[in-house]
Every structure is written in structure tokens, then in C-alpha cells.
Simulated scan of single mutants.
Amino acid sequence: MSFFRVAALSVVALVAATGLAHAQDALKKDMIGQWELSTTERSKTCVVTLKGDAAGQGSKLELEPACKTALPFTKDIAAWSVKGLDIVRLQDATGEAVIDFTEVEAGIFEGLRQGEGVYILQNLAAARSMAKSMDQMIGDWAMVRGNGQPICSLVLTNTESGPDNFQVFVKPKCDPAIAQFNPTQWRLERGQIILMSKAGATWQFEADDNAQWRRVPDTADPLIMLRQ
């Protein structure tokens, strides 16, 4: 291999390494602060404070005392670090991953623990704002068609029904299509209301510009949820 080719490859490697270092530094800077670590629908939560000070093979963090009860795996977390371009790692004292997170939306990270499921890491203020939004969902709702004709009434509750889900009560005299679907659980997930049937089928609703929730994907005869 010629000297010039070796030199060119060395420059490329240096540029790549520099770019990676800059990306890691930027992500690390963005992560310093308070975060909420939770199950997907926040039925179990704890506050994690990520710091910039070095700690062993990573950086310091603090877990609120309730973490070990709410999320037992957190007892193994001793530090945090940034790996690759976009992985935020909560690690044990040896540097091994307890859980790795990647950003799925602005300020929202997802991590998977085999045999347990998906966990969410998000900015604490944003998480508490989401909790307030969820509280606002609780109560009586009407389902209407696009022409405004009411076809069903239901109640979203804050009564837990299985992991991360809550009970739904459908009132009598609903449209046959809704009665057949027969939602029994709901949750708020990434800005959508998710209704679930006993059989495990799901309907998703997104808020529109008119402060109402439309079933997605949209159809020529939309199904809309309105707060009563």
C-alpha cells in the first residue's frame, strides 16, 4: 500500500474518530440533569440524576431511594456513559450495561431488558407534563362519527388493569362495531390514546387541531373521541 493511500486512510479514520467524539460529547452534555426512568406507561417510575463528574468507567448518577423498590434492576446501576453515536448506557460498577437506551423521539429514550420488556428514559419535566396529560384523559368520553352523530359512551379510569394499562368501561347501547370490539383497557402512549380489547386488539386515536381524538389511520367515515 502506498504512503499516500495510508495517509489518506489515516485522515479518514481521524475525521471519523473526531466526529464520533463530538457527537458523544454533545449527547453527554444534553443528558446531564434529571430524568424519569419508567415502565412504558409510567405505572412504575423513579428519578435518575445524571451528572458530568467521572465515576469509575463512566459518570456519576444518583437514583432516588424509591428506585430499587419500583424498578429492582436499578440496584445494579452504578454509573452512566455514552456509547457509539447515540447509546445512553446505565451501567454496573464494572462498566457492563444494565440497560442501554436509544433516542426514539426528541428527549425520549427506549431501552429493552430481555425477559422484562421496554423501559423509558425521558426528561423529568416532560414526563411530569405527560402525567398531567394522562390525568386529563380520565373521565367520560363520547365516540362519534365524522358527521357528529354519537354512537357510544365510555369511561376511561385510572384503575390499573395489568402492566401499564387502565380500565375502560363501555356504556350500554353502543354501535355494534364498538360493542364487538369491546375495549376493556386503555393507555396513553407517545401522544396517542390506545384502546385495547379483551382479545388483545388495539385502536389508536390521535389528537387533531380541533381538540378531538381521531382514530388512525384515518378513513372516509372517521371515528372520533370527544371528552364529555
Rank of each mutant, 00 (worst) to 15 (best):
K173P: 00
G191K: 09
A97Y: 10
Q180Y: 04
N182Y: 11
Y119T: 01
M134W: 10
S81Y: 07
A79L: 14
D175E: 01
A127M: 07
Q180I: 04
I87G: 01
P163Q: 09
Q212C: 06
V170T: 14
A93D: 15
G111S: 01
A199F: 03
G200M: 02
V170R: 14
D209N: 10
D208R: 13
R215P: 01
Q204E: 06
A177P: 00
I194Y: 15
R215E: 10
D92M: 11
R190S: 05
L112H: 09
I108L: 10
I138R: 09
I120C: 01
A106C: 00
V144H: 01
L124D: 08
R113Q: 11
D135A: 15
G139Y: 10
D175T: 01
D140V: 14
I138G: 10
I178W: 12
D209S: 09
P176Q: 04
Q114N: 07
F166G: 01
V104C: 02
G146R: 07
A127S: 15
W203A: 07
A127R: 03
Q192W: 09
Q167N: 14
G84T: 03
R128N: 14
Q180H: 06
L195S: 09
N182F: 12
R214K: 14
F205H: 09
C174Y: 04
T94G: 10
A126M: 02
I151F: 05
P172N: 03
F205M: 07
L188C: 03
R190N: 08
P172Y: 07
Q212Y: 02
A131D: 12
R190M: 04
E206M: 12
A199Y: 06
R113D: 00
R128M: 06
A106V: 04
E103P: 01
N147P: 00
P163M: 03
V144S: 01
G139E: 10
L154K: 08
G117C: 12
V104R: 03
K198I: 11
V168I: 13
Q212G: 05
A126T: 03
G146D: 10
I151W: 00
P176G: 03
Q167F: 10
A142D: 14
F109T: 01
Q212M: 13
E105P: 02
G107P: 09
G95W: 12
F205V: 02
V155N: 12
E206Q: 13
L154Q: 09
A179H: 03
A106W: 03
F181K: 04
Q167T: 15
D209V: 02
A93G: 11
G191H: 05
